[in-house]
């Protein structure tokens, strides 16, 4: 479906409105992450969520977070908790993250990675004046 300008603006607004407050698990699936086994990590999250019948959780792939040393890296965003990046997330640790961080709201020990940077998209307002 090809959009014209006003349709595009509407489309963008729609997306912004639709964002639900839910838990998001972002798995870094860049080449580096995949080489380090992030694919299996991704599957482990999905399996664990479906086997535990959890709802309101989205597992998403994303690009490289830049933390190559500790691939696979995963960011966990639970509403009401700070966003946390975990490093070296094996399938086993993925299950642990679901169990502790997502369900019990406890951070998992020894795996937290410092978040590299704050987000410019939240900081500055978009300046439309040219």
């Amino acid at each position: 479906m090809k959009l014209n300008r006003s349709e595009f603006i509407k489309y963008r607004e729609n997306i912004k409105v639709k964002q639900p407050e839910e838990t998001v698990i972002l798995v870094g699936l860049g080449s580096c992450g995949i080489a380090a086994g992030a694919g299996k990590t991704f599957e482990a999250f999905q399996d664990e969520i479906s086997s535990k019948n959890l709802s309101g959780i989205t597992v998403k792939q994303t690009g490289c977070m830049g933390l190559c040393e500790t691939e696979p890296t995963v960011e966990v965003r639970v509403p009401g908790m700070p966003d946390i990046i975990y490093g070296k997330v094996t399938p086993e640790i993925a299950r642990k993250i679901i169990e502790k961080h997502v369900i019990r709201k406890i951070l998992v020990n020894n795996l937290i990675q410092d978040k590299p940077s704050s987000d410019i998209m939240k900081k500055g307002e978009i300046d439309n004046a040219v």
Partner: peptide, 18 residues
């Protein structure tokens, strides 16, 4: 091959070993 974080790296038949 752009996996410097996993250095030294090799691939065998496409499978990556870091």
């Amino acid at each position: 091959i752009g996996c410097c974080g996993l250095a030294p790296v090799m691939t065998i038949g496409g499978e990556v070993f870091g």
